[in-house]
Design a protein around this nucleic acid. Structure first.
Lengths: 337, 337
DNA sequence: CTGAAAGCGCTAACAA
DNA sequence: TTGTTAGCGCTTTCAG
């Protein structure tokens, strides 16, 4: 097993100094075309590639971004991971991925420490909340953090979200327009900003139409729990005629419960709407009306924010709220627009 | 923005040498309880954590594993990513994730180079094929590679798979036992070893029962393509009465097409079976009979193989084939076992 | 433009 | 057990 080729070996073969080799492989360093040619030739003959870690030690830039995610069962997150990886790869960055077990209390804390050990240039927290002491800690380290699909009270914390309040409100208006009167809501994890904002917007939208929430249950963003919540809410005769579920992943559980456990028809007996517009929402088995999160723009914006702060650490925090779109499908209407 | 604390600063504060600090934070190094205490105290006061990169440069071990995945829409892979991340984190390793665009021809090649630049200690290729020249390249670098859910002809290449041949055969026996006679198959990507082995096993199983394949189409592991394949295959009167789809992800597309485009009932008009047993397969909307891949054991074995080779680079290749299990649900039987 | 030399933060001999 | 010393492979002054 051959040891890895170093710049020194390339230098020897090319008949130049080691620093000349370095310059040829360093963006924006000066080397004459002649030297560059010699070096590149020797390098490719030897199969040389610069050692990213050694480079990182010098420059203080690892070109790695830490990505913390919690629950990959919800298709929204694998999608986000894929896009982050691609977007960052395009900019010459790579993704160090971490799972934050939602079960462990200080899971995020521990994970963050490990990430920091690896000298990442920035961190994306996808749908994970962080104690404010931890965010201070990161700020002290001067390492940019952006929350993705989550907000926090701390105004120094950058975040990128969809305008969840407007999303909830839009769903409410959609229900009201359809003539529904007895309306239910299935909540996500109570602490999550997405949950709070969507519910607040939904309630506001109902109020706009002179309505109010008839019934509410908690699904905690988990399939099995959402199923239970739906069963509890809809088994009786006083069930709602329309149901907003805080995300698509839970909405699938709810539709399954309504149809296969309770024998109800969607939307005839109960209209169901979700939030996210993950690919499965478009599958005919669900054909789910939902409020689409502009995931491409969300990822792009998150990456931009991160790059901004990496290039200029003094750059202030930014809380971006992007606008989504109501996608009407057959889970709320017989003949969608 | 404070510069990161170094071991030197801790040493000064603790009144010991820098190497004493290093030893306290190095597994299996000797330090007296007294020094250790002083050092740990100073370290925690300063908020010191060892720089993983600097350590990696010395030891030659980065404690990072590169994980290459292609298509996260198929729920099998997010699941695998999550488990890999957890399993490796437990052993003190971290995951550098890379998406291999299946569209780009030499995507894997390019991605591998970038991974190698980061001095990872090992690589997991999840469902990605690699040219044999590339595997030679890796072997030359002495970096362990394990294929996950994919095999390759090169016998020096370690891999972990389910016994796909047996899986296919088991599905065939299940169909035969149910009395189906006109049987179809929807293939994945033709080059994939999983596809080839499952189909071969399925054909062998049909032959065992004195049957043979009536019709075949290609879905390439992609939802939309599988849907088209199903429509083409089942629109006519000569449609099959049972259909084995090479993985669950495509099986969902097939069931959707049969039910919502063609108005057929599953399993009454056509029985459908898949492969993987992803969580969605258990959702009542599909309730899919499938051959379960033992994903926990697959991941554990892959990690073991990797660790083995990292600890002893001379350790030979191993091609592990794990046994799965037939999971019978309502997509093939009215009343499952 | 180029080479020599000084480290980045840490671990691993080596003496003491 | 400790401190001293020599690097890991690279980038970056600094002279020339």
């Amino acid at each position: 097993m051959a040891r890895r080729i170093t710049s020194l070996q390339v230098a020897e073969r090319a008949g130049v100094s080691q620093s000349a080799v370095s310059r040829v492989f360093t963006e924006g360093a000066s080397a004459s075309p002649a030297t560059a040619a010699k070096v590149r030739r020797a390098a490719s003959e030897l199969g040389y590639r610069p050692n990213a870690m050694a480079r990182a030690m010098i420059t203080g830039k690892s070109r790695m971004i830490g990505l913390v995610v919690a629950y990959l069962d919800n298709q929204f997150y694998p999608e986000a991971v894929e896009r982050f990886s691609n977007a960052l790869q395009e900019r010459g960055y790579h993704v160090l991925i971490f799972m934050a077990s939602p079960t462990v209390g200080d899971g995020v804390q521990a994970v963050m420490e490990e990430i920091l050990d690896h000298q990442v240039d920035g961190i994306v927290l996808a749908s994970v909340s962080m104690s404010s002491s931890l965010s201070t800690h990161c700020a002290a380290h001067g390492i940019p953090v952006v929350l993705f699909n989550r907000e926090q009270n701390d105004p120094r914390m950058s975040s990128v979200t969809t305008d969840n309040h407007t999303g909830g409100r839009t769903i409410a208006a959609h229900f009201a327009g359809l003539g529904h009167r007895r309306i239910g809501y299935i909540a996500g994890h109570e602490q999550a900003s997405t949950q709070r904002d969507r519910e607040a917007g939904f309630r506001a939208g109902l109020a706009d139409a002179g309505l109010s929430l008839a019934t509410r249950a908690v699904g905690g963003f988990v399939y099995a729990d959402a199923r239970e919540a739906a069963l509890a809410m809809c088994a009786g005769a006083d069930r709602p005629d329309a149901l907003f579920v805080c995300n698509d992943h839970m909405a699938f559980a709810v539709m399954d419960a309504l149809r296969y456990d309770l024998g109800l028809r969607v939307p005839h007996d109960i209209a169901v709407a979700g939030f996210d517009d993950v690919p499965i929402a478009a599958w005919p088995a669900y054909d789910l009306t939902t409020y689409r999160q502009p995931i491409n723009r969300m990822v792009a914006r998150t990456v931009d924010l991160l790059m901004q702060r990496i290039d200029d650490p003094a750059h202030g925090a930014d809380r971006t709220k992007l606008t989504g779109a109501l996608i009407v499908r057959r889970s709320t209407t017989r003949a969608p627009a």
